[in-house]
Amino acid sequence: MKNRLRYLAGIAAALALLCGSTPRALAAQAASGIAVLVADQSAPGAMPSSGQITLNGVVGLLAAESGLNLTVHAYPWRRAQLMAKNGEGLLYGAAETPERAAAFTFTKPLYMVNQWLVTPAQHHIDFRRWEDLRGKVISIGAGGHFGPEFEEHRDKTFTVQDNTATISGRFKMLNMGRVDALLIDSFRSAPQLEQRLNCLYGDIGAWAVMAKPVSAEAVTISVAKTSPLHALVPQLNDAIDRLNKTRGFHKYLDRRAAAPGC
C-alpha cells in the first residue's frame, strides 16, 4: 500500500511538472512509462543477461521509491546516448565527461562500480599504474567513455578499440589476440567477476580479472538539459537519497553478487 501511494503521488507530481511546460503528449509519457535508456551489448535474439536482470532490479527500486513509472529500454550505446540527448528518455550509467556535462545534468550517485581489466588467463597484465598499459590495445564498449584519467591516457599511452557491439564479440577478439584486454565496469569484486565471466564466456576461453581496478566511478542517471524530463531530476535525487540512506541499492547488489551461477 505504501509503494502504491508513493507511485500515485509520483505520477501526480511528474504530471504536474510536465504539464506546466510541455505538450500534452509529453505529459502522458509520465503515466505511460518514462524510458530509462541503457546499453545493449547482447547478441541479437539473446535472452536477457544477468547484468540486464540486475539493472532492471536497480531501476525497479528507483521506480518504486520515486513513484515514477520507469521502464528499461536497451539500445546500442551510441543510439541510447543520442536518444537521451533528444529528450527521449533518461540515460543510465554514462560517465560524466566535459562534453556530456555540457548537454546533460547528472543525478546523485546510485552506487559505485570498479573498472576492471580482463585478460586471457595465460596473459596477465600486471597493472599498477597507467604506464603498465603503454602500447596495449584495450577493448571498451562501443561509444564508451570512462573517467578523466582514462580519457587522458586514451590513444596516448594505450589504444582503444570500441568498434565491437556485443560483449561476446569483445571476448572473441580478446581470445584471438586482436586486443590485449577488455575494460569492464562492475559492482562485483575481482574474484566474483572472474568467476562470472568464466561461467558466461568459458566456451570462448579462460579469463582473468586483474587484482587492481583501473578506476572507480559513480553510476548516475543523466537527463538532457533541454528535455522536459529534466524537471524530474529533483524527484529522482530525493529517491536516490532515501535508497542510499537505507542502503537499498547496496543490499540488492550484494544479493546479486552472491547469487550462484552466471
Rank of each mutant, 00 (worst) to 15 (best):
1 M>K: 14
2 K>A: 13
3 N>P: 08
4 R>F: 14
4 R>I: 14
5 L>Q: 11
13 A>W: 03
14 A>G: 15
16 A>P: 00
19 C>A: 12
22 T>C: 15
39 A>C: 09
40 D>A: 05
40 D>M: 06
41 Q>R: 13
46 A>Y: 06
46 A>L: 12
48 P>F: 07
52 Q>M: 15
52 Q>F: 08
53 I>K: 13
54 T>R: 12
55 L>R: 11
59 V>S: 11
62 L>I: 10
62 L>S: 08
63 A>T: 07
63 A>K: 06
66 S>T: 07
68 L>A: 09
69 N>M: 05
70 L>P: 05
74 A>F: 08
77 W>E: 13
77 W>L: 14
79 R>K: 14
83 M>G: 01
83 M>W: 05
85 K>N: 09
87 G>M: 08
87 G>V: 07
90 L>R: 04
91 L>H: 00
94 A>K: 03
95 A>V: 09
95 A>R: 05
96 E>A: 07
98 P>Y: 00
99 E>M: 01
101 A>P: 00
109 P>C: 10
117 L>A: 09
117 L>N: 08
117 L>Y: 13
118 V>Q: 09
118 V>F: 07
119 T>E: 06
122 Q>L: 07
123 H>N: 14
123 H>P: 01
123 H>S: 14
124 H>C: 03
125 I>Y: 11
126 D>S: 15
126 D>P: 02
128 R>K: 15
130 W>C: 02
130 W>A: 04
131 E>N: 10
131 E>Q: 14
132 D>V: 08
138 I>E: 01
141 G>S: 13
145 H>N: 08
155 D>H: 14
155 D>G: 04
159 T>V: 12
160 V>I: 15
163 N>Q: 14
163 N>W: 02
173 M>V: 01
174 L>M: 11
177 G>R: 05
178 R>W: 13
181 A>G: 08
184 I>K: 09
186 S>L: 06
194 E>F: 05
197 L>C: 08
200 L>D: 12
200 L>K: 10
201 Y>T: 06
202 G>T: 06
202 G>I: 09
206 A>E: 09
210 M>G: 13
212 K>F: 02
214 V>C: 01
215 S>V: 00
218 A>Q: 04
220 T>L: 01
221 I>T: 05
228 P>I: 02
228 P>Y: 02
229 L>F: 09
229 L>T: 02
229 L>A: 04
232 L>S: 06
236 L>H: 04
237 N>C: 03
238 D>C: 00
242 R>M: 07
242 R>K: 15
246 T>G: 04
251 K>C: 00
252 Y>W: 11
254 D>K: 10
254 D>Y: 01
255 R>C: 01
256 R>L: 13
257 A>W: 08
258 A>S: 14
